[in-house]
Design a protein around this nucleic acid. Structure first.
Length: 303
DNA sequence: AAGGTGTGCAACCGCGCATTC
DNA sequence: AGAATGCGCGGTTGCACACCT
């Protein structure tokens, strides 16, 4: 059975909202609150889908929304959080309280992404593009390069999942601001397979940051954020001798297979997470200062 | 001036998750 | 337990405007 549409779409208006519609929605929500969004259009006298009303309210009408140019500080926060979280716009937006996820997403796609590309950085991994070449499999590529890339992706994914987990926690968090030794750590460029020789380029250019949650202040590992005692499963990734065993690399070419495994195994760790971790990390991140990000902001924004 | 192209952004769509019944 | 429902998210689309030729 297919999914039932969120509302009866026949006869409903689509497209840009008029000032009159805005006023109706604004007046209604101010008076009664939105309650069940599906019922809002009828009650507010709008010929719109409830979903459309919700979107309009969240992205435009809700009080306290800041519009207009992003500040350099906001830019930094977005870039840093994106490096950690990927396209988790809602979580990123949670750290820019007056901005909406939609606005941040648009800003990323139309502005920051292009600037990163122009600088030769991959907007997804934030690595230099030339070292991030996932060539089509079976296309006469260098296997050792692929292996290294896989290791990097696995490291990256692990780090990202940790951060993401904290983001999720934050979203539903209770607001406690007690710190638990959260630090920011730079993941080194250490090759995962010692038998392979790795170019200096790989070693110097691969700067990946991750949030590290340590339950004690005894940070035994300065080598990798993924070697955290409280996250044993994740910590295994960089040391894996046989990456294919977890990545299903040749089987389905899907590195995300590792992510889902890690994700599942990490679930048990989430209960230890503290609120506000992300914000603390962002502050730490700002202090740590990624060279490439600094470079980005030294570059003129207009061409 | 007119047509083509690029850009930015608001809004839509479909999916997945959570909640309710 | 499972279907129905609602919400939120991320990806995508389409329109309006700016700029170029």
């Amino acid at each position: 059975m297919g999914r039932v549409p969120c509302c009866e779409k026949v006869g409903l208006k689509k497209g840009p909202w008029t000032p009159d519609e805005d006023k109706k929605l604004l007046d209604y929500v101010r008076k009664y609150g939105h309650g069940n969004w599906r019922s809002v259009p009828a009650k507010a006298g709008l010929e719109r889908c409830g979903k459309s009303c919700r979107l309009r309210w969240i992205n435009y009408l809700k009080p306290g929304i800041k519009r207009g140019n992003f500040t350099a500080e906001e830019d930094r926060t977005i870039i840093q959080l994106h490096a950690l979280l990927g396209n988790r716009w809602s979580i990123i937006a949670a750290h820019l309280p007056q901005r909406t996820d939609n606005e941040i997403k648009n800003y990323w796609n139309t502005n920051i992404k292009k600037r990163l590309i122009r600088m030769g950085l991959d907007p997804i991994t934030h690595k230099t593009i030339k070292q991030n070449t996932f060539e089509p499999f079976g296309g006469g590529h260098d296997q050792s390069k692929d292996t290294i890339n896989i290791c990097h992706v696995a490291q990256w994914e692990g780090a990202r999942l940790e951060a993401e987990a904290r983001g999720s926690k934050l979203q539903v968090g209770s607001g406690s601001s007690q710190l638990s030794g959260l630090i920011l750590s730079k993941i080194p460029t250490q090759p995962c397979l010692s038998s392979h020789s790795v170019s200096t380029e790989h070693n110097t250019a691969y700067n990946m940051y991750a949030l590290v949650l340590a339950t004690t202040h005894d940070f035994r590992s300065s080598m990798s954020t993924l070697s955290i005692p409280t996250l044993p499963v994740v910590s295994n990734i960089p040391q894996m001798k046989n990456t294919e065993s977890i990545l299903s690399y040749k089987g389905d070419n899907n590195v995300m297979g590792a992510s889902s495994q890690i994700k599942k195994l990490m679930e048990g760790c989430l209960s230890n997470l503290q609120d506000d971790d992300i914000m603390v990390a962002v502050e730490a991140f700002r202090t740590a200062r990624s060279e490439s990000i600094e470079e980005l902001f030294n570059e003129p924004t207009s061409t």
